[in-house]
């Protein structure tokens, strides 16, 4: 019976799913050729304050998406922290790896800043910059730094919520000014987007590094004990 399921029913089901997907793709590409969303999105990129189309979609057209995505990231981190304290870290690495890490971590932080700035007009942006910061944290954790380069517990908590916080504050400030939630006025769009992206970069980097270390951060009072 189990063999019947795994050798007959399962392949049949998988082939059926694949067939439906191919059929849906065929219908989507041969269907009516009206105005595509892409043309509309590309035509209005100059009005969004940045010239990289992906960044303009992420932080202008679909800013709600990005806000909720940062909230999902925060929720995942809270889930990891709620599962108990962190396991003991790695043994301190030997001289060569320590030396390489001492060179690489500042370079990664510099590259993250570059990515963040360049994201306005070239490939890059908050997610890539945050990933580089997170990679710096992972590298420090692998080299045996128990804190993975993360700050103490109160600062860590503030940094983790920074992305959502800056996003919401900008949205609420725009509402107070009489515009919609996250409807940027054209002149200020570039700077508002850069402000939000900076907050998001720090939050993503800290969240990824803390997720790699795993476990709830030690409280300041607990951390003082050896």
């Amino acid at each position: 019976m189990t063999r019947f399921v795994s050798w007959v029913l399962l392949p049949l089901g998988l082939v059926a799913i694949a067939g439906v997907l191919v059929w849906a793709f065929y219908l989507a590409t041969t269907g009516e050729t009206g105005a595509r969303l892409a043309d509309l999105a590309l035509a209005r990129v100059p009005e969004t304050g940045v010239s990289n189309p992906v960044t303009s979609v992420l932080l202008n057209y679909r800013a709600y998406d990005t806000l909720l995505e940062l909230a999902v990231l925060l929720a995942a981190l809270l889930g990891i922290w709620s599962l108990g304290p962190a396991a003991p870290g790695f043994q301190r690495a030997a001289e060569v790896l320590q030396g390489m890490v001492a060179w690489f971590v500042p370079l990664l932080i510099l590259a993250a800043g570059h990515m963040l700035w360049v994201g306005a007009y070239a490939p890059g942006g908050a997610f890539q910059a945050g990933a580089l910061l997170g990679a710096a944290g992972v590298m420090l954790a692998l080299a045996g730094h128990p804190s993975a380069g993360l700050p103490s517990e109160p600062v860590l908590r503030l940094l983790a919520i920074l992305g959502v916080l800056v996003f919401c504050l900008v949205g609420l400030a725009l509402m107070v000014l009489g515009l919609g939630f996250l409807t940027y006025p054209p002149g200020m769009a570039k700077w508002l987007i850069l402000l939000i992206e900076t907050g998001a970069t720090l939050a993503i980097g800290v969240t990824l590094a803390a997720a790699y270390r795993g476990g709830r951060p030690a409280r300041a009072s607990e951390g003082a004990a050896p």
């Binding site: 595509r36 969303l37 892409a38 999105a41 590309l42 990129v45 189309p53 992906v54 303009s56 979609v57 992420l58 057209y61 679909r62 998406d65 990005t66 995505e69 999902v72 990231l73 995942a76 981190l77 889930g79 990891i80 942006g125 997610f127 945050g130 993503i204 969240t207 990824l208 997720a211 790699y212 795993g214």
Partner: peptide, 22 residues
């Protein structure tokens, strides 16, 4: 290329890694 699916994928990648970590 169409930037809208690209933005969806970019958020998707980050959500996928956070789900994996959890």
């Amino acid at each position: 290329p169409d930037p809208v699916p690209h933005a969806l994928v970019l958020t998707g990648i980050v959500v996928a890694v956070s789900a994996t970590a959890l």
